[in-house]
Amino acid sequence: MIPLRPTSAILRFWLGCLLALLAGSLAQAKIQFDVFAGYGDAGGGVVRAGG
């Protein structure tokens, strides 16, 4: 069995960290989607019939 060289172990550690970080950020990636219909905000917007 060939022992791992220290540089390779460090490389693998950091690579693993990077992958975990990426996976974590992808899992957290979300879309915020807000819709405001009509004029004004709180409690629903107002619109005019026929306008």
């Binding site: 957290q28 979300k30 915020q32 989607f33 807000d34 819709v35 405001f36």
Partner: peptide, 9 residues
């Protein structure tokens, strides 16, 4: 109609 979208993915 106002729409706001934020994408952090």
């Amino acid at each position: 109609m106002a729409i706001e979208v934020f994408n952090d993915g």
